[in-house]
Measured scan of single mutants.
Amino acid sequence: MSSSSWLLLSLVAVTAAQSTIEEQAKTFLDKFNHEAEDLFYQSSLASWNYNTNITEENVQNMNNAGDKWSAFLKEQSTLAQMYPLQEIQNLTVKLQLQALQQNGSSVLSEDKSKRLNTILNTMSTIYSTGKVCNPDNPQECLLLEPGLNEIMANSLDYNERLWAWESWRSEVGKQLRPLYEEYVVLKNEMARANHYEDYGDYWRGDYEVNGVDGYDYSRGQLIEDVEHTFEEIKPLYEHLHAYVRAKLMNAYPSYISPIGCLPAHLLGDMWGRFWTNLYSLTVPFGQKPNIDVTDAMVDQAWDAQRIFKEAEKFFVSVGLPNMTQGFWENSMLTDPGNVQKAVCHPTAWDLGKGDFRILMCTKVTMDDFLTAHHEMGHIQYDMAYAAQPFLLRNGANEGFHEAVGEIMSLSAATPKHLKSIGLLSPDFQEDNETEINFLLKQALTIVGTLPFTYMLEKWRWMVFKGEIPKDQWMKKWWEMKREIVGVVEPVPHDETYCDPASLFHVSNDYSF
Rank of each mutant, 00 (worst) to 15 (best):
S19C: 11
S19F: 02
S19T: 04
T20S: 04
T20C: 04
I21R: 13
E22H: 07
E22D: 08
E22N: 11
E22Y: 10
E22W: 12
E23A: 05
E23C: 04
E23H: 01
E23P: 09
Q24N: 15
Q24R: 15
Q24H: 14
A25F: 00
A25M: 14
A25R: 15
A25Y: 14
K26W: 04
K26T: 06
K26S: 00
K26N: 06
T27M: 00
T27N: 05
T27Q: 12
T27F: 00
F28A: 15
F28E: 15
F28I: 15
F28L: 14
F28M: 13
F28W: 13
F28P: 11
L29V: 14
L29E: 10
L29P: 06
D30M: 11
D30G: 14
D30E: 00
D30N: 12
K31V: 14
K31P: 15
N33C: 01
N33T: 05
H34W: 08
H34C: 13
H34Q: 12
E35K: 13
E35Y: 13
E35F: 13
E37K: 15
E37C: 12
E37Q: 12
E37V: 13
D38P: 15
D38S: 14
D38C: 14
L39E: 02
F40G: 10
F40E: 05
F40Y: 09
F40I: 12
F40D: 01
F40T: 12
Y41Q: 13
Y41L: 13
Y41P: 15
Y41A: 15
Y41M: 14
Q42E: 15
Q42F: 14
Q42L: 00
Q42R: 01
Q42H: 01
Q42W: 15
Q42S: 13
L45N: 15
L45F: 10
L45V: 11
L45H: 14
L45E: 13
A46P: 14
A46G: 10
A46Q: 11
A46E: 11
A46L: 12
W48A: 11
W48T: 10
W48C: 09
N49K: 07
Y50A: 04
Y50T: 11
Y50Q: 12
Y50R: 11
Y50L: 09
N51E: 09
N51G: 10
I54T: 10
I54V: 04
I54L: 09
E56S: 03
E56Y: 04
E56R: 02
E56V: 02
E56G: 07
E57R: 08
E57C: 02
E57W: 10
E57P: 06
V59M: 04
V59D: 12
V59W: 05
V59E: 07
Q60S: 10
Q60G: 10
N61E: 01
N61S: 07
N61D: 09
M62A: 09
M62Q: 09
N63W: 09
N63S: 12
N63G: 07
N63I: 08
N64T: 10
N64E: 10
N64G: 07
N64L: 03
D67R: 03
D67M: 07
D67C: 02
D67Y: 02
D67P: 12
K68D: 13
K68E: 13
K68A: 11
K68P: 14
W69T: 00
W69M: 09
W69V: 00
A71F: 02
A71I: 04
A71Y: 03
A71W: 03
A71P: 13
A71K: 01
F72W: 01
F72R: 07
F72M: 08
F72L: 09
L73A: 11
L73T: 09
L73N: 09
L73Q: 09
K74P: 14
E75Q: 00
Q76S: 04
Q76D: 03
Q76N: 14
Q76G: 13
Q76F: 00
Q76R: 00
Q76V: 00
L79N: 04
L79P: 01
L79Y: 00
L79I: 00
M82L: 03
M82K: 11
M82C: 00
M82E: 14
M82D: 15
Y83R: 14
Y83K: 15
Y83D: 14
Y83F: 13
Y83V: 01
Y83N: 13
Y83A: 09
Y83W: 12
P84D: 10
P84N: 10
Q89V: 01
Q89K: 07
Q89T: 04
Q89C: 02
Q89E: 01
N90Y: 00
N90F: 00
N90P: 00
N90H: 00
L91W: 02
L91I: 04
L91M: 03
T92V: 00
T92D: 00
T92L: 00
V93H: 12
V93I: 06
V93C: 09
V93R: 12
V93Q: 13
V93L: 07
V93M: 13
V93G: 13
L95M: 02
L95V: 07
L95D: 03
L95R: 03
L95I: 06
L95G: 04
Q96F: 13
Q96V: 13
Q96T: 12
Q96S: 11
Q98K: 05
Q98F: 02
Q98R: 06
Q98T: 01
Q98V: 01
Q98G: 02
Q102T: 02
Q102E: 02
Q102W: 01
